Amino acid sequence: MIGRLQGQLLEKKAPEVLVDVNGVGYEVLVPMTTLYQLPEIGGKVTLSIHFAVSENSQALYGFYDKKDRELFRTLIKVSGVGPKMALAILSGMETDQLVSCVMEDNVSALVKVPGVGKKTAERLIIELRDKLKTWQVAHSPLAEMEAASQPQAGGQGSNDIVAEAESALVALGYKPVEASKMVANVLRAHSVTRSEELIRLSLRSLSPA
């Protein structure tokens, strides 16, 4: 079983990255919260891996933080929640935000994630509440990154950036029309020069405050 990958980042196209490990390229699905923390193409990367095997496929899911992998594994044990939905949940909110939603019975925040209806959100809260009691909600390193990397004025998103952002949102489960609307709303309020930033802001607009 693969539990960790360390190598060179060759490609980064949300929600998938390609990592070269001694000449072997591994395709890894990552949540957006991990994607934001990865180096530029060509940089060295280390990911904690969850190896998922089903009747029809095999897939690697990668996480920058072991804590995120632990929560991912906890999520997929919930009835009705598969790896794709768990990835979407962890893309739409940080680990500590999700824990807060569960502990505060915040159904309205959870149903904003594509594929999560009211019944699934309620099931998540019921089944996760006891398991997450020991988690400590702390200031996330990602929040510090966001504060230090606000979009600069004067930039303008290219068609390629918009297309890549919309494609990533669709891959996470949002309908094309929803993805286009989310991206358009962000571009009306921000000047964005990178697709990762556009994806982050789009997802953040749906996340709990």
Rank of each mutant, 00 (worst) to 15 (best):
S149T: 14
D130G: 02
A184Y: 07
T193P: 03
S205D: 08
H190L: 03
Y26T: 03
D65T: 04
P83D: 09
L60R: 01
G80A: 09
I76M: 12
H139Q: 11
V113G: 01
E16I: 14
L29G: 07
Q152E: 08
D20R: 09
C101K: 02
G42K: 08
Q97F: 06
A138E: 10
E127H: 12
L35S: 12
T134L: 12
P141D: 04
L187D: 04
A147Q: 15
V17P: 04
A171L: 06
L10P: 01
L203K: 05
V21M: 10
P151G: 09
V19F: 07
K44N: 13
D130A: 14
S140D: 05
D160T: 13
L5V: 14
S207Q: 08
N56C: 04
V19A: 02
T134W: 13
L38S: 14
D65H: 01
Y36P: 02
M145V: 03
H139S: 15
M1W: 07
G82H: 05
G23K: 06
D130W: 11
D160M: 12
M1S: 12
G157Q: 12
D20Q: 12
A147R: 15
T120W: 00
Y61K: 06
L10G: 00
E166N: 03
L60P: 00
Y174C: 02
S108G: 01
T74F: 00
R129A: 06
A189Y: 00
L203N: 08
E144H: 08
G80V: 10
A148G: 02
V19L: 10
I2L: 15
K66P: 15
I89S: 00
I89K: 00
D65W: 02
L87F: 06
F51L: 10
H139A: 14
V81G: 04
E40K: 08
K133T: 05
N185L: 14
L18P: 06
N106V: 06
Y174G: 01
V28M: 10
P15F: 07
V102Y: 02
L75W: 00
T134S: 15
R69G: 07
R194E: 15
R194I: 01
Y36C: 07
E166Y: 06
K118S: 06
G80S: 05
E122H: 01
L187Y: 07
Q136A: 09
Y64C: 05
